[in-house]
């Protein structure tokens, strides 16, 4: 419990907003007039989104309240409602930002000149490193957002579809591989997801990059066959060792 909560509880909503205003003036340079409004709004927005991810990570989205978010962000309730409709809206905005960031990085490693397996490995590696470096967002994006349902779940699903499309480029000749079900790519992604989410729930988010060899194995095997998938997996392992 923060020290000033009981004080705040005794005051009206209006006064709470004032108090929140004080807190955020401490964080920002004084004299709001010197700063262009969008700059302030941008940083407040960012603070709220970070606070959202942090609170979600510690107590789950369901138990998170607006009061938790504004307190962790050091903004007023009024500011929150200027920027977001409700906590679902805030989660969606946070999800949108995380997704755009992740996809941007993955697209960066994508190149038609690279062999498919190398591209998949690099994309997986980038993704795991991103998650490891931002544990709160990892938890929010992979666990809380899909659990919240609605548009957050839709966004999560659309992110998976992009990855799946990337994977499905590994299908070389449709005739040759006709025995492989069309769900093979989706299954491979779900397999990787299970492993990643398990690590996050176990509190090992920072060790996610170590999963690379296993993930390379499971996502390439439907397309390349077992021998080649094992070879790719060993290569990924070597890559990690060389770096260590």
């Amino acid at each position: 419990m923060p020290p000033n909560t009981s004080q705040q509880e005794a005051k009206s909503d209006r006064e709470q907003d004032d108090l929140g205003g004080l807190i955020h003036r401490e964080h920002l340079p004084s004299g709001r007039a010197d700063l262009a409004e969008p700059v302030i709004a941008h940083s407040q927005r960012e603070r709220i989104l970070n606070a959202m991810a942090a609170t979600c990570a510690s107590k789950g989205f369901g138990a998170t309240t607006i009061a938790d978010i504004v307190e962790a962000a050091g903004v007023s309730r009024a500011t929150f409602y200027e920027l977001f409709k409700d906590k679902e809206d805030c989660l969606q905005a946070s999800m949108e930002l995380s997704l755009a960031d992740a996809m941007g990085r993955i697209v960066e490693v994508y190149s038609p000149d690279k062999p498919w397996a190398t591209m998949v490995r690099d994309a997986a590696r980038t993704f795991l490193e991103l998650l490891a470096s931002r544990p709160n967002f990892a938890r929010m994006a992979l666990i809380e957002a899909p659990a919240a349902g609605g548009r957050s779940l839709d966004m999560y699903a659309s992110g998976k579809r992009v990855l799946q499309a990337l994977l499905d480029r590994g299908r070389s000749d449709p005739l040759e591989e006709e025995a492989i079900p069309s769900s093979a790519g989706r299954g491979a992604l779900a397999a990787a997801e299970q492993l990643i989410v398990g690590q996050i729930l176990a509190g090992n988010t920072e060790r996610l990059p170590e999963l690379l060899p296993d993930i390379v194995y499971i996502v390439t095997i439907p397309y390349l066959g077992q021998d080649e998938a094992l070879r790719q997996s060993r290569e990924a392992e070597k890559l990690l060792q060389d770096e260590a």
């Binding site: 989706r186 299954g187 990787a192 499971i218 077992q226």
Partner: peptide, 23 residues
Amino acid sequence: GGRGLPANASRMAAGAVVGLIAD
């Protein structure tokens, strides 16, 4: 070649199954 497979093979196979069901 079962012995040489990744230790997480069972977790991943189970993950694929429950993921496809959830979809």
